[in-house]
């Protein structure tokens, strides 16, 4: 019961934070609110017994990601208070998607049900082998590196490629179209 109460409280805080991210126009405030958002998420993960995920979210999500966003926001101009675009269609889209999701969630097994299909296949073997054969207490590390080695290799390569992409985007001179663009603008003005 306690668990559900804490969860409910944290999720309502998340909703409030999302609402304020939506309302704020100042970029720095948006970034700070995003940091708070990810920290709340890591609290939720601890509550859901996912300590590894909470650790990652706290280090990566609210640490590095906030730093990068602050760096970007410092170089960008202050956000302007503009009219919202596409307001009407997006309300329809949001309402219909949330209706569909509520219908789907009603059909899912209850939260924390030990007999849900997800807990019956493959994972009991992982837990048993991890104890008897590998002698590695942290099953998450075990699955990450051993059973799902290919996955993790792929993810590492994705991170590597994203890093390469950022380096290529931010340190190259050839992408700078500014001079060209300005010339064109001047021509048009004449």
């Amino acid at each position: 019961m306690n668990f559900l109460l804490i969860n409910f409280f944290l999720i309502s805080l998340l909703l409030i934070t999302t609402f304020f991210i939506f309302k704020t126009t100042s970029l720095i405030s948006v970034v700070a609110l995003t940091g708070a958002f990810t920290l709340l998420c890591s609290a939720i993960y601890v509550n859901l017994d996912a300590v590894d995920v909470a650790f990652t979210e706290a280090a990566v999500g609210s640490g590095i990601s906030t730093i990068l966003m602050v760096m970007a926001a410092a170089k960008l101009p202050e956000g302007k208070k503009n009219k919202l675009i596409n307001l009407f269609p997006s309300i329809i889209l949001a309402v219909s998607i949330s209706l569909i999701l509520i219908i789907i969630i009603a059909n899912l097994p209850l939260l924390g049900d030990p007999n849900a299909p997800i807990h019956l296949h493959v994972v009991p073997e992982y837990l048993k082998e991890s104890k008897d054969f590998f002698h590695i207490p942290n099953v998450v590390t075990n699955i990450l590196a051993s059973y799902r080695g290919f996955d993790t290799l792929g993810e590492t390569i994705v991170i590597f490629t994203a890093g390469l992409g950022v380096i290529a985007l931010l340190t190259s001179n050839t992408l700078n179209r500014k001079t060209n663009f300005k010339k064109n603008n001047k021509k048009n003005e004449r």
Partner: peptide
């Protein structure tokens, strides 16, 4: 609790940050 979704999400978080950094680079 089931460790398999934890593994998937753990890697996905780091990848998510890397990709949103790419998005920020595009914005810059």
């Amino acid at each position: 609790s089931n460790p398999l979704p934890h593994v998937l999400i753990l890697t996905a978080i780091v990848v998510g940050v890397a990709t949103s950094a790419l998005g920020l680079a595009l914005v810059l």
